[in-house]
Design a protein around this nucleic acid. Structure first.
Lengths: 182, 182
DNA sequence: ACCTGAACACCGTTCAAGT
DNA sequence: ACCTGAACACCGTTCAAGT
């Protein structure tokens, strides 16, 4: 499967080093062969991204509690940096990701649940709250990936980073956040 | 100047399309010439990134109020997407950005000031608070750049996105955030 | 000190031709 | 329907040679 080969390369070499020719080489076919399955390099990467969104959405679906949700998001990026970057690379205009929408919908559901259970209390709508928390987790994930040497304290464990950051922003007591994640 | 040419290309074509050969072409020299000034493509991009950090730090330095600070950060990304991506691309291990540290220090100072003036009230340390807010603004900037068609409401004006997001997270009344940004 | 010209291995992509 | 082989324009990088 070309997509699996592409994922391997992303895991080993990262998004910047990804090469369609190497995918072909690994599959044991000529460099022209992938073009029978994908119209170009970008389409293959988009297919890879879709699978990434599905995996991430599954992980989020099985998680409750805001801090744990955040931990899952940042850990996914930590464990699959090449895939994560590929998922969130700038898309060609007009390209929609169905699985990406599904993943966000999962996050929205989880955050709405956290609001209803009283875990978090904000004046903003669930949509805006979810978007704001997503943005925060995403920034945390991205900067964590780029600061391998613990610059700015961003090199810690994904779960701890998520807890600390959410706690600082939402003004919750540390205990509340920890209790919400158990 | 090679760095200026590189910035032009980043502004016109973006980080993904950046080519060292084109920098040389634009400067009217052979493709080997840049190697007399930079040891490779990556070093030139790092030099470009440093200038970007200096520019961003200057803009932050001249801004007070948390919401306006956020607006400046997201607008910088909006107005200079290629440069912004270049600044925050994964660095070769062991590479430190002095100007990047300075930019963060500026953010830290501004946020400490906002805490002292009572604009924001959190239990966390200034460092953690600054890091958490940076992470949020960064995620907002990154996702804003990647969602040109207003998906998830991320396509709005940078200043409005910053205000809405900070307001939702910090649980401030909208009025407070707006007053802080004037 | 700085630049050129030519070369190398590598890319993404196309296309005629083969099965 | 799927793949190959060869070609194209493009990359980043090196290096001997020129001024």
């Amino acid at each position: 499967m070309l997509i699996d080969g592409a994922k391997e390369i992303l895991a080993e070499s990262g998004h910047e080093q990804f090469s369609l020719n190497e995918v072909a080489r690994r599959a044991g076919v000529s460099t022209a062969a992938p073009y029978r399955h994908f119209s170009n390099r970008d389409e293959l990467l988009s297919a890879v991204a879709e699978e990434g969104y599905v995996t991430l959405a599954e992980k989020l679906e099985n998680t409750s509690g805001l801090a744990r949700l955040g931990g899952v998001y940042v850990r996914f990026a930590h464990d699959n940096p090449g895939l994560f970057v590929t998922m969130f690379r700038s898309r060609p205009a007009g390209t929609e990701s169905a699985a990406g929408r599904a993943a966000f919908a999962t996050l929205l559901r989880a955050i709405t649940a956290a609001q209803q259970s009283g875990e978090i209390a904000t004046h903003a709508s669930p949509e805006i709250t979810a978007r704001s928390l997503w943005v925060t987790l995403h920034g945390l994930a991205v900067l964590h990936l780029q600061q391998p040497h613990d610059r700015y304290g961003l090199g810690g464990e994904p779960e701890e980073l998520a807890t600390t950051t959410l706690s600082a922003l939402l003004g919750l007591k540390i205990d509340d956040v920890i209790r919400g994640s158990e």
